[in-house]
Amino acid sequence: MSVLLSSAAGGPYRDNMVDHPIPAPGVAVEDLDDDVCLYRSDIDEVLVLNHSAGDVWRLADGQLTVPAIAAQLARVYAMDEAELRTDVRTVVSDLVARGYLIDRPAEPATP
């Protein structure tokens, strides 16, 4: 599993791991064959995710944790979950660092 990158890291990129990944605001998304094309207009960057990285993106809906994403993909791909968890963590971390994923905003505390 790997992320096909359109440009080198640096500049407007973050450096965080997240619990419940969700697309960052302002990221445009288009499916293209089995890939997913992402576009950040603020830095005019196109990122193309291959099939497997695209599956991680599609499951990053703010409801699933990284382990839960890995568990779902392990069932679909019939692969070892522990091995996939490392790959999923890498993809998510990469996309967070590049500003395409963020952590789900915390819900306001009830009084």
Binding site: L4, A28, E30, D33, D35, C37, S41, V46, V48
Partner: peptide
């Protein structure tokens, strides 16, 4: 070649996509 490469190439050579960046991206895709 991969279609994603064409998306990158076309946007990289756009003269005026900045006027409507998201619409331009979607049009290119």
């Amino acid at each position: 070649a991969a279609r994603g490469d064409a998306v990158r190439a076309l946007l990289a050579h756009a003269f005026n996509h900045y006027r409507a960046p998201e619409a331009s991206f979607r049009a290119v895709v």
